[in-house]
Amino acid sequence: MQNFEYIAPINTLSAAQALSPDAGVTAVLAGGTDLLSLLKQHVETPTRVVSLRNISALRGISKRGGGLRIGAMATVEDLLGSKAAAPYESLLQAARGITAPQVRAMGTVAGDLLQRPRCWYFRNGYGLLAKSEGKALVPSGENRYHAILGNKGPAYFVNASSLAPALISLGATVSVAGPEGEREMSVADLYRIPSSDAERENTLAPNEIVTEINVPSASGWSTATYEVRQRQLLDWPLATASVALRMRGGKVSDARVVLGHVAPIPWRSSEAETALKGKAANESSGVEAGKAAMAAATPLSQNKAKVQLATVAVKRAVGMAG
């Protein structure tokens, strides 16, 4: 780990100022469960680390309006213990997928959203787009865990967030603070598929921080998350599906289906949503929705199985929500 200077401001404005481009290469430290590994691997080499631990305004989970406000520094453990979060089934199911008590205690909700891809080429120093001598490594390489959608290049990694699919399916937004003040955007808009080496996988400026996540009321929605992972616990998901369904007369009247770990961004599938509308919510409509979601999948040389896993994730999530 390269040495760095450290500051732990007490409010978001000073944090944004501390992240000023004038300060050199900076990194934001929240729970640290991802950042420290990146620093040790020299994947990130900031000269300044700005810790959010002293900003009390970023903590806590509470009801707000009809919805839920999750402070960016609220931990996964906080989320799982929150009474206010109890109505958000799919979010809690996703949070339970973060299994290690140590990660739950340290890792934050915003940190989960903004953790960097687990792509092993990226983590081993070949860059976000995984290249060696200008050649893309993933398409002909070890791509069993890589993207099956949104993978036309140059990005092949999968978004690593456990919570983003659920939050997007719940219509959540994030508040982002920068030196010029706050802005709000949908969780989905946090992410992008980078088109060049100059881009990251998220849309934040280097001196912006997420301050809170706002989830609208889930009243009237049936929600569920199903995560496929190989080991019973402590494993990165192979595919995840979060669904939110609004039912009328036993039929789906509105649906949101978001897949995780299948594309460089959390993948909202309008095809799956269309397939569900007007149907009963059960495993057989779920299979159709899963197939619709995967119709456009373009698996790489080693990851055809992920098409099946994502299909099953949708099927089971719909079955759970139904």
């Binding site: 469960t33 205690a105 340290m106």
Partner: peptide
């Protein structure tokens, strides 16, 4: 790298990975 737990200590009542806390 915050995976194996051999470094586990308890901080403010919760188990944490001490390899991953400054």
């Amino acid at each position: 790298r915050a995976t194996c737990g051999a470094c586990t200590v308890i901080v403010d009542g919760s188990p944490v990975y001490s390899c991953t806390m400054l």
